[in-house]
């Protein structure tokens, strides 16, 4: 069981309190009703699924209830960092320990 640092609770909590919520930084278009089929396909269906560093959403569903973003390495299954929803992707260099 992983420990995940909730950026709102400001401490590491057991994975059991969290729920994964898909890829992060996928922005819903403001004019969604008017976008083309290709744009909708890119927004709704396409996901990165990288080997290595991935940006993903989690929710501290059995804690503070907040959605937040995380940088995780899909190879080592280690969280590099977590940050609040709405914040930009962090510069990763500073987190490489």
């Amino acid at each position: 069981m992983l420990l995940i640092r909730c950026p709102y609770c400001q401490e590491e909590r057991p994975e059991l309190e969290f729920r994964h919520a898909g890829e992060a930084h996928v922005v819903r278009p403001h004019n969604i009703a008017d976008i083309s089929d290709e744009e909708f396909e890119a927004f709704f269906f396409h996901r990165a699924n990288p080997k290595g560093i991935t940006h993903e959403r989690w929710r501290h569903v059995h804690g503070c209830g907040r959605f937040f973003n995380a940088v995780r390495d899909t190879v080592s299954d280690r969280f590099v960092t977590t940050y609040k929803a709405g914040e930009p992707k962090p510069a990763l260099e500073e987190h490489k320990a």
């Binding site: 209830g65 929803a85 709405g86």
Partner: peptide, 13 residues
């Protein structure tokens, strides 16, 4: 509720 919270927190905050 999870679905609604998701949109409220991340798309329509």
């Amino acid at each position: 509720l999870h679905h609604m919270e998701d949109y409220l927190q991340t798309e329509f905050p």
